[in-house]
Amino acid sequence: MNDKPCDHILDYINDQLSDIERKQFEKHLSECPRCQEELKEMEDLMGDLPTYMEQTEPPAGMKQRVLDEVFSNEEEDTAPVRTKRPVKWKAWSGVLAAGLLLSIGMNVYTGLEVSDLATENEQLESSLTEIQTALSELEDSESGTASPLQQTELASAEGTNAAGTATLLNRETRQELLVQTQNLENLEPGEVYQVWLIEGETPEPAGAFTTNDTGSGGVAFTINEEKSWDAVAITKEPQTGNQTPQGEIILQAGL
């Protein structure tokens, strides 16, 4: 949302950054004396304000309730859960990680200028790992209403070693799909990789992207929740804006 890393400081203090943004800011913080000073100042200004507030008597029995809940949740945590994996996009939810996952998507996308193959692959892999960490953290955290986000491996067509993932995220009032790929063939000028959402037999164009010279790319887009999508697929199209696919399917997954 802001251009300069220094501008994130208020949102850092108010905990309004996604995990990834927060990590990025913390990295910046370690290198920026001005932000360090400002943060310290703000923390000093705010740190003990609550001690100037009037004290309130805690409600009876709160200690027991709070601690019981903490310890009982702990026991549940250690049990192997994660049996329930909803299949349809619709059933998926989990508001927390949306911004975070998207920002990973953006990193991958903007990372496309990196020319070094090893670095690029490492970068993508570490981004994917971060997604997985984020997902498992999400699964660990919120109980009750938030069920986990879903991530699906894309299957590649025969004869290619293309790979990728599709991640669904619930972003407040809408749902977004993040698609990340690697090892795709280089595109000719004008060509794009097109993502399709498929309901029954009917594909509908979703996001499109190009790749860098190591064949990595990705895109994030809002999806229409009214429909019950059955699959996601990626094709190579001679131009953007195709309403029906001309190219062969390169990657796909059932939803």
Binding site: P50, M53, E54, K63, V66
Partner: peptide
């Protein structure tokens, strides 16, 4: 667990008062 309980007792009032504000 006992350590958490001690910490809880130590900070219950301050934190609760703040959360209540």
């Amino acid at each position: 667990k006992e350590a958490l309980e001690v910490l809880y007792d130590r900070y219950e009032k301050l934190l609760y008062s703040f959360a209540y504000r």
